[in-house]
């Protein structure tokens, strides 16, 4: 190995180790704060090396877990239904567009593509959903608006169908007398597992991470998803108690609440599933980005 690279390579690794630390450190800090003793924060502030460890914030949250459990329920239901529906609609839209000879193909493509060029803006979009479709305070409002279909994902899927599925497969299906639906479900879908998994992962993350729709359409605590509950708690740490307790014991609870650490404990409870799952799906996420970059 030449001398130049013997010096260079450690420097490159140093760069990446620093980058990795910068990426992970904030998560570590939030976790450590969440298990720090409230008094030691009052004295020394947040620290990566707390003088005293205590799980008081978690105890406090688990004592009054109804709202958190409910918000998790909302998130899980919306993510589950939303991901399945969105993958289905995306695939059903993308597949015909990938078939040569489809009539109205240019019209349909333009119809899709124009939504990427121009939008009506947030206010008309919001008013449409609220007044015409009655979406205020419904689970549907966290599934349908904006999240159900992304034109970009349709284009990504279309180019996968067009580039990797040989036309002979469709032809063989037609010769055997299979209907278009049968060809799609029995021949195309099984061959498209990679792109279906990629789009499902993208959509799953955008449903899981959504707080925007919830903020706009939901104002009942019972329908708040976990991301929006976290938003509320960040802006007003007393939110959880004000919402869930009767006024008589609220004051007592408030006085006992570890205000500094409880936020961070909620943040950890909110991101834990994603952090636990991340090592298992990061490979697919990276290859999804790469395929989008090359083909999309």
């Amino acid at each position: 190995m030449p001398i130049a690279s013997r010096i260079r390579i450690p420097f490159i690794h140093l760069f990446f180790v620093l980058f990795a630390i910068a990426s992970l450190l904030p998560f570590v800090l939030v976790f450590i704060v969440s298990i720090t003793d409230e008094q030691s924060i009052a004295r020394h502030g947040y620290s990566l090396f707390p003088s005293k460890i205590k799980f008081a914030a978690y105890n406090f949250l688990f004592n009054d877990f109804a709202q958190i459990a409910r918000s998790y329920g909302v998130t899980i239901v919306c993510t589950f239904i939303g991901t399945i529906l969105s993958v289905l609609i995306t695939a059903l839209f993308a597949y015909p567009l990938s078939r040569p000879g489809l009539p109205l193909k240019r019209t349909l493509s333009f119809f899709l593509f124009f939504t990427m060029l121009f939008s009506g803006g947030m206010a008309p979009w919001y008013i449409t959903y609220v007044t015409m479709f009655g979406m205020k305070n419904t689970l549907m409002s966290m599934i349908v608006p904006n999240l159900l279909l992304s034109a970009f994902n349709v284009l990504l899927m279309r180019s996968f169908f067009a580039n990797t599925i040989p036309e002979s497969i469709v032809e063989s299906g037609t010769i055997d007398g299979a209907s278009e639906w049968k060809i799609f479900l029995k021949l195309i879908v099984p061959l498209s597992a990679p792109i279906v998994a990629t789009i499902a992962l993208f959509n799953l993350l955008s449903y899981w991470n959504d707080w925007y729709n919830c903020m706009l359409f939901i104002d009942k605590a019972g329908l708040m998803n976990i991301q929006y509950l976290m938003t509320k708690m960040l802006l007003n740490v007393q939110f959880l108690i004000e919402k869930s307790s009767s006024s008589s014991n609220a004051t007592e609870l408030l006085s006992k609440m570890p205000t500094e650490t409880i936020r961070m404990a909620l943040a950890i409870i909110g991101i834990a599933p994603l952090l636990v799952a991340y090592p298992f799906f990061q490979r697919y996420y990276i290859s999804g980005i790469t395929s989008g970059a090359v083909k999309g």
């Binding site: 899709l112 939504t115 009506g120 008309p124 979009w125």
Partner: peptide
């Protein structure tokens, strides 16, 4: 879906 989510708001 595109009509509901994109085109009606465009008219809006």
């Amino acid at each position: 879906y595109l009509i509901v989510n994109n085109y009606i708001p465009m008219y809006g």
